[in-house]
Amino acid sequence: MNTVLGLLGGLFLIAGAAFLLFGGLGLVRMPDVFNRIQAGTKATTLGTLFSLAGAACLQPEWTLKLMLIGLFILFTNPISSQVLARAAHRSHAEKSALTAVDRLEDDQGA
């Protein structure tokens, strides 16, 4: 294995894992559902992409399949977060006391 590429791959893996960790941390620390979804979806998407890139550096012949996985993540992950956020808002999930404005609630006349 090419050592430079291997080192790069390992670093990418660690960066990805660190972003996943931030996602988990955000999930625990954020005050309400919407902020948790925000932290969760962004950090895990980029974290997974970085880990996939790291794996591609370590095993170059897997690149095609890893790329496909990354594309799907990029496409499906935001959709599920949006649907979940909408459902949380419609089921009147508790909002953090910090929430400044809620134009959606205003417009739904609720």
């Binding site: 931030f22 941390l25 955000g26 620390r29 954020m30 005050p31 309400d32 919407f34 902020n35 932290a39 808002h89 909002k95 953090s96 910090l98 929430t99 400044a100 404005v101 809620d102 134009r103 959606l104 609630e105 417009d107």
Partner: peptide, 15 residues
């Protein structure tokens, strides 16, 4: 935001 001890947030829904 996550690493800051004070969680600097001003969340809201905008249109």
């Amino acid at each position: 935001i996550v690493l800051a001890p004070s969680l600097p947030l001003t969340p809201g829904f905008v249109k």
